Amino acid sequence: MLDDRARMEAAKKEKVEQILAEFQLQEEDLKKVMRRMQKEMDRGLRLETHEEASVKMLPTYVRSTPEGSEVGDFLSLDLGGTNFRVMLVKVGEGEEGQWSVKTKHQMYSIPEDAMTGTAEMLFDYISECISDFLDKHQMKHKKLPLGFTFSFPVRHEDIDKGILLNWTKGFKASGAEGNNVVGLLRDAIKRRGDFEMDVVAMVNDTVATMISCYYEDHQCEVGMIVGTGCNACYMEEMQNVELVEGDEGRMCVNTEWGAFGDSGELDEFLLEYDRLVDESSANPGQQLYEKLIGGKYMGELVRLVLLRLVDENLLFHGEASEQLRTRGAFETRFVSQVESDTGDRKQIYNILSTLGLRPSTTDCDIVRRACESVSTRAAHMCSAGLAGVINRMRESRSEDVMRITVGVDGSVYKLHPSFKERFHASVRRLTPSCEITFIESEEGSGRGAALVSAVACKKACMLGQ
């Protein structure tokens, strides 16, 4: 009897593995994704193909990295998701002549009506938060230079001027797309009239992360975010950046690689679950690469896999709870928690219980395998993109072996128990001629924006502006 049951459990697990095998990517698959990513990057950089390229390769006008001589107080704003952060950054000489960066910050959550109302409502709310922060720190009387981390696709015309191309991540505030974001912020500050600010720089969160990590390690020339969304930036040779005049030196390019796949480059790798996630998203047909990796989508992918296993009578005796059938019910943090389970399955059992399920031991094991399959594919897909960037940098610099540091931020990278190990191992397999160091950014977005502002202020002083 026991043997029969054991055989049935083994057969069930084997069927589960057959279904989950769809998520496995072979090294040849990853090399294919990497080569296609490089081709799209090239198209994004070139003037004649930029418009139709899915990977936009947006110039950021960040050319210099901090040298350690900029000092002063800077205000930093960070808008990239449902939370908005205001930070005071003091850049100065530390002990023994070292450079020191001290920060104080406060988080504000953005109400739904500000995210989806008008641009005026959104930026009025942001300036209200700045006003509140300055009151708390008794700094209303000071006109501070301000660095703005704005983590949406922007076409820069200068370091302090950028046109919002399109909202992502659930934002829909009308009247912002096609307009200068810094102008919208300046107008809102003017409307309030109770404080003055000098907006000197606007950067993407990947750029802010790279600059913040450069402060720790001067070989950091790539910034990457794996959180709600997924994106990367890197220092490109100016001669390859056709959208900006000049051939000397390097400029940081914001790849906006989340949109890779929007022209069909990933079609052969998309599964039924991916198509369902895409169809029910706020932007169907867009940001397809990001939807395979980002935390906004990972939990939902797992939920759809679990429903398939229920329908195949391989999980929960073929019956799903009402909660499990509800879109968004299986949160991405559950994926991390399930994979963090120590082996007694308590954590998995508790999560499934909150979803109205009474799982068996085998159910718990199957749910864990589903989570591992989805998150491992995410790590491997992400590795193909980064390997594409790094191999490109090595080739354009004609280096036999390139040493490089990548600064990384984002909740999936930082909080998932195995993502970074799987990701690092896969990147290294795909970049055999590179020695890569990964560092995690601390308060990256805010500190990085302030350091970019410090560079901009120093330049302005040198130019006598």
Rank of each mutant, 00 (worst) to 15 (best):
residue 202 M to S: 11
residue 6 A to L: 10
residue 18 Q to H: 15
residue 73 D to E: 05
residue 370 A to M: 02
residue 305 V to R: 02
residue 299 G to A: 10
residue 337 Q to K: 15
residue 246 G to H: 07
residue 261 G to H: 03
residue 152 F to M: 15
residue 299 G to C: 04
residue 433 S to R: 12
residue 436 I to G: 01
residue 295 G to V: 08
residue 420 K to R: 15
residue 39 K to W: 08
residue 167 W to A: 11
residue 42 D to A: 10
residue 323 Q to Y: 04
residue 309 L to Y: 00
residue 13 K to D: 15
residue 314 L to S: 06
residue 340 S to Y: 09
residue 283 N to Y: 11
residue 133 F to Q: 02
residue 183 G to P: 11
residue 396 S to P: 01
residue 349 Y to W: 09
residue 231 N to F: 02
residue 37 M to N: 00
residue 89 V to A: 09
residue 414 K to H: 04
residue 417 P to G: 07
residue 402 M to E: 07
residue 399 E to S: 11
residue 222 V to I: 06
residue 88 L to F: 04
residue 165 L to M: 12
residue 312 E to L: 12
residue 126 I to N: 01
residue 155 R to F: 14
residue 79 L to M: 13
residue 122 L to Q: 06
residue 339 E to C: 06
residue 170 G to Y: 13
residue 318 G to H: 06
residue 99 W to N: 06
residue 279 E to W: 09
residue 370 A to W: 00
residue 159 I to E: 14
residue 403 R to T: 06
residue 249 G to S: 02
residue 94 G to Q: 13
residue 320 A to S: 13
residue 187 D to I: 00
residue 297 Y to A: 10
residue 200 V to L: 09
residue 324 L to V: 07
residue 416 H to Y: 12
residue 59 P to K: 02
residue 218 H to T: 07
residue 342 T to S: 08
residue 429 R to M: 14
residue 408 V to N: 03
residue 42 D to G: 11
residue 256 E to I: 03
residue 233 C to M: 01
residue 386 L to C: 10
residue 27 E to Q: 05
residue 169 K to G: 08
residue 292 L to S: 10
residue 203 V to A: 06
residue 383 S to N: 00
residue 290 E to H: 12
residue 453 S to M: 08
residue 176 A to T: 11
residue 338 V to M: 05
residue 344 D to Y: 02
residue 184 L to W: 13
residue 411 S to Q: 11
residue 146 L to I: 15
residue 95 E to N: 04
residue 395 E to M: 13
residue 404 I to N: 00
residue 66 P to R: 12
residue 242 E to A: 04
residue 117 G to Y: 09
residue 329 A to M: 07
residue 310 V to M: 09
residue 411 S to E: 10
residue 90 K to C: 10
residue 197 M to S: 08
residue 36 R to P: 00
residue 30 L to H: 05
residue 365 D to I: 07
residue 160 D to T: 04
residue 63 R to C: 14
residue 259 A to L: 11
residue 447 R to L: 15
residue 248 E to R: 06
residue 240 N to R: 07
residue 329 A to T: 15
residue 163 I to T: 12
residue 182 V to R: 14
residue 387 A to V: 03
residue 188 A to I: 07
residue 90 K to L: 10
residue 154 V to F: 08
residue 207 V to H: 02
residue 178 G to L: 12
residue 380 H to D: 12
residue 80 G to C: 03
residue 190 K to F: 13
residue 110 I to G: 01
residue 8 M to R: 07
residue 385 G to K: 00
residue 138 Q to P: 06
residue 357 L to F: 14
residue 46 R to A: 15
residue 45 L to D: 00
residue 306 L to R: 00
residue 285 G to L: 03
residue 399 E to W: 01
residue 119 A to M: 11
residue 385 G to W: 03
residue 329 A to H: 02
residue 464 G to A: 07
residue 328 G to V: 03
residue 262 D to R: 14
residue 169 K to R: 11
residue 247 D to S: 07
residue 67 E to N: 09
residue 455 V to N: 07
residue 349 Y to E: 12
residue 210 M to Y: 05
residue 206 T to A: 09
residue 376 T to A: 09
residue 140 K to A: 13
residue 16 V to E: 14
residue 364 C to M: 10
residue 336 S to H: 05
residue 320 A to T: 10
residue 349 Y to S: 12
residue 453 S to W: 10
residue 254 N to G: 11
residue 36 R to H: 07
residue 77 L to N: 04
residue 20 L to R: 00
residue 252 C to A: 06
residue 213 C to E: 04
residue 277 V to T: 06
residue 104 K to C: 03
residue 117 G to P: 11
residue 109 S to R: 14
residue 140 K to V: 07
residue 36 R to S: 05
residue 163 I to K: 12
residue 53 A to M: 05
residue 262 D to Y: 11
residue 183 G to E: 13
residue 405 T to W: 08
residue 284 P to S: 09
residue 320 A to I: 12
residue 256 E to G: 11
residue 273 Y to A: 05
residue 253 V to P: 00
residue 220 C to G: 03
residue 438 F to A: 01
residue 175 G to K: 08
residue 342 T to A: 09
residue 3 D to N: 11
residue 27 E to C: 02
residue 271 L to I: 15
residue 338 V to N: 00
residue 405 T to L: 03
residue 432 P to E: 10
residue 269 F to I: 09
residue 334 F to S: 02
residue 20 L to T: 15
residue 348 I to C: 10
residue 153 P to T: 13
residue 143 K to E: 08
residue 68 G to M: 05
residue 188 A to G: 08
residue 355 L to A: 02
residue 206 T to N: 03
residue 197 M to V: 10
residue 159 I to M: 08
residue 240 N to L: 11
residue 114 A to I: 05
residue 260 F to L: 13
residue 131 S to C: 13
residue 229 G to I: 06
residue 55 V to R: 01
residue 420 K to G: 09
residue 362 T to G: 02
residue 397 R to L: 01
residue 410 G to C: 02
residue 43 R to W: 02
residue 211 I to W: 10
residue 142 K to L: 10
residue 286 Q to L: 13
residue 158 D to Y: 09
residue 222 V to A: 06
residue 30 L to Q: 15
residue 64 S to C: 13
residue 203 V to S: 10
residue 89 V to D: 02
residue 393 M to P: 00
residue 460 A to S: 08
residue 236 E to R: 01
residue 465 Q to C: 12
residue 349 Y to I: 07
residue 382 C to F: 02
residue 337 Q to E: 06
residue 397 R to G: 04
residue 214 Y to A: 15
residue 255 T to C: 15
residue 376 T to E: 06
residue 157 E to F: 14
residue 175 G to M: 07
residue 424 H to G: 09
residue 435 E to C: 06
residue 317 H to F: 10
residue 355 L to S: 01
residue 346 K to F: 08
residue 128 E to Y: 06
residue 257 W to K: 02
residue 147 G to M: 11
residue 394 R to M: 04
residue 236 E to C: 03
residue 192 R to Q: 06
residue 54 S to D: 14
residue 324 L to H: 00
residue 44 G to V: 01
residue 32 K to Q: 11
residue 170 G to E: 14
residue 306 L to P: 01
residue 127 S to E: 07
residue 288 L to A: 11
residue 391 N to W: 13
residue 88 L to G: 06
residue 272 E to K: 13
residue 189 I to L: 12
residue 447 R to C: 11
residue 148 F to K: 08
residue 444 G to L: 10
residue 228 T to Q: 15
residue 304 L to A: 11
residue 445 S to H: 14
residue 247 D to N: 06
residue 256 E to D: 15
residue 268 E to N: 07
residue 203 V to M: 02
residue 391 N to V: 11
residue 11 A to H: 08
residue 236 E to K: 03
residue 72 G to K: 05
residue 14 E to D: 13
residue 139 M to V: 08
residue 57 M to L: 04
residue 151 S to K: 13
residue 345 R to D: 15
residue 404 I to C: 14
residue 176 A to M: 11
residue 436 I to R: 00
residue 194 D to H: 05
residue 149 T to I: 07
residue 364 C to T: 09
residue 156 H to A: 07
residue 59 P to M: 03
residue 17 E to R: 06
residue 454 A to Q: 13
residue 143 K to M: 08
residue 268 E to P: 14
residue 366 I to Q: 02
residue 264 G to R: 06
residue 272 E to M: 14
residue 380 H to I: 10
residue 268 E to F: 04
residue 399 E to H: 11
residue 73 D to M: 02
residue 238 M to T: 07
residue 50 H to A: 03
residue 194 D to M: 14
residue 34 M to V: 05
residue 102 K to P: 00
residue 63 R to I: 08
residue 168 T to D: 15
residue 168 T to L: 10
residue 125 Y to R: 04
residue 205 D to C: 04
residue 239 Q to P: 08
residue 190 K to R: 09
residue 156 H to K: 10
residue 50 H to P: 02
residue 168 T to G: 14
residue 261 G to Q: 01
residue 225 I to Y: 10
residue 389 V to I: 12
residue 80 G to M: 08
residue 196 E to Q: 07
residue 361 T to H: 09
residue 442 E to W: 10
residue 284 P to L: 05
residue 377 R to N: 00
residue 34 M to C: 05
residue 162 G to Y: 10
residue 67 E to T: 15
residue 319 E to C: 14
